[in-house]
């Protein structure tokens, strides 16, 4: 680890001020990604702005069919929240499958999304649901948030405040976990709204993505045979020691079909 400064501001103004007083600051949430990368000397921020004392960034609420989750909410809280379990059980189940108990009690939804690890679980929920990212500067529609490999449309000094999810009629998250890291090799988030079906895939490519051709087909006929019939031409899938692109393509199909059949039974 390299030397760095540390601040723990109490509100957003203080946070932004502290952030901008160094030329290479970083927000610190649960530190589950950032701290290990600093220990490996792959990341060398001059200052860490710890968001854990900012109350405004925490908490879960529901209003007008919108589930709102503060950026600093830890995975364990999302997994155990009755509001989430009752309104959007797929999201609670997603959160309960992240890492291990230690990670779930430190890692945050904001940190996960800002980091945009191609194998992380939450990004699929952001894209697989109608959602909005509320930041310290603006509102970003889910579709405009993820920009590719570990990249988002956040400005460097911009921070995520909360995420608003529009509650669907039904939804499911299925993860084919890497047997070693337990991150997603393929993760499928499938949701049904009255006017739309969404299918988002994480783990399989350099960035989470939606399968638009399939969504269209499934909206008209919600049935797994549609998956075989649709030419949804996914290319550029990841190739690594744990799964090559062909196996990932195969798994996407298997997992989407499984997701459909489970939702059908509900």
């Amino acid at each position: 680890m390299y030397a760095f400064e540390y601040f723990a501001p109490k509100n957003l103004q203080e946070a932004t001020k502290a952030f901008n007083s160094f030329n290479d600051s970083k927000w610190l949430a649960g530190g589950m990604t950032l701290i290990p990368s600093m220990k490996l000397r792959m990341n060398a921020p001059s200052a860490l702005i710890d968001l854990s004392s900012i109350e405004q960034l925490k908490g879960i609420s529901i209003k007008n069919n919108i589930l709102s989750i503060g950026a600093m909410t830890i995975h364990a809280d999302v997994a155990n929240s009755l509001d989430v379990i009752n309104s959007l059980p797929a999201l609670a189940s997603l959160a309960s499958g992240i890492g291990d108990p230690q990670v779930r009690n430190r890692g945050t939804i904001g940190g996960s999304i800002a980091n945009n690890d191609p194998a992380a679980d939450y990004p699929s929920a952001i894209l697989g649901l109608k959602s909005k990212i509320i930041t310290s500067k603006k509102e970003i529609d889910a579709g405009n948030f993820f920009n590719g490999f570990f990249s988002t449309s956040l400005d460097t000094d911009e921070l995520i405040v909360k995420i608003n999810f529009q509650i669907p009629e039904s939804a499911i998250y299925l993860k084919f976990a890497n047997p070693v890291s337990r991150y997603a090799i393929v993760g499928i988030f499938l949701s049904k709204y009255h006017d739309e079906v969404r299918v988002a895939v994480t783990g399989a490519a350099s960035c989470v993505f939606r399968v638009n051709e399939l969504e269209e087909g499934l909206f008209h006929d919600f049935c797994s045979s549609v998956v075989d019939k649709t030419d949804y031409g996914i290319t550029n899938l990841n190739d690594d020691i744990h799964a090559n692109s062909e196996y990932r393509r195969y798994l996407i199909k298997v997992m989407i079909k499984k997701a459909i059949s489970i939702l059908q039974k509900k």
Partner: peptide, 10 residues
């Protein structure tokens, strides 16, 4: 080495 950590070495 591609399995230099417990994220990759099973």
């Amino acid at each position: 080495p591609l399995t230099g950590s417990l994220m990759d070495y099973g």
